[in-house]
Nucleic acid binder design. Sequence first.
DNA 1: CGTTTTTTATTGCAAATGCAACAAAATTAC
DNA 2: GTAATTTTGTTGCATTTGCAATAAAAAACG
Lengths: 150, 150
Amino acid sequence: MKDILREIGMIARALDSISNIEFKEHDLTKGQYLYLVRICENPGIILEKLAEMIKVDRTTASRAVKKLDMNGFIEKKGDQHNKKIKRLYPTEKGQSVYPFIIRENDHSNKVALDGFSEEEAERALQLLQKVRMNIEKNWDYVKKGNKRNY
Amino acid sequence: MKDILREIGMIARALDSISNIEFKEHDLTKGQYLYLVRICENPGIILEKLAEMIKVDRTTASRAVKKLDMNGFIEKKGDQHNKKIKRLYPTEKGQSVYPFIIRENDHSNKVALDGFSEEEAERALQLLQKVRMNIEKNWDYVKKGNKRNY
DNA sequence: CGTTTTTTATTGCAAATGCAACAAAATTAC
DNA sequence: GTAATTTTGTTGCATTTGCAATAAAAAACG
């Protein structure tokens, strides 16, 4: 059995750890960069979709977003046609941090793909996207309280 | 820029979330399965190496291992020639849970690689191992307090 | 040898995380 | 239309996480 999952876990923890240390400089605490980039790239997104996109619990996302709001990185706006949802938008301050996040992420990507040919990098991305799509079905399923069978 | 890192992050969080839910059945709390499998596969490993292997902070590993010990999954043994280190070994109970962890992980791997040919799966593993090796250098570097330049 | 540095392990905070439970708006079903 | 279900969001609580600081054994260095 090709154990790609352990590799993925190691890579993800290492990268997250690095990012968290590096973004402290921009007053972002643990995990916040994850939410902020996505809100910048999807202005008007709602919490539910954001959590789904990041693959994190709704309640965790709720608190992370609340903190981003309190610290002035984003703002929550009510919707005219739907009183329940709160749309999320980056503030000036949030947008000003965005380039730093991208630059850091790009650098990590470069490091990760060091020694890869253009074809290999492309191939790696395709394979990972496929893995992600395979796994997200299970995530939805299990998160909704269902039990996998194996 | 091929953003493989976001894909990896999503996959890792989704899988970790699934595993944590599924291992509750075996009285393992969040994250513990990570430590237990590795101790089973590397009996006598010390905390420091374990943390490095998993890519997690030393102090986090320390507490996770303490809990595994308190709950009877593993035990810490002093070394005869080195009074500082504590070698970690699975107990009977720990070993009895091991097959379940492997079975779950295997299943997740199967799901992840659904639709992959044998060659593709092999290729994916190779690429990920390479990425992991590229990234772990940076992780060591940053964890030791150094600053990446980019 | 003695001293300096590195390795290994732990604890004290402060913060993030996530399940349970709840609430209210929106949507679907009848 | 109303009732049942789903969607969206939040808090309470218990746990995990990780940076700082500490300590002590071991290893390196002179």
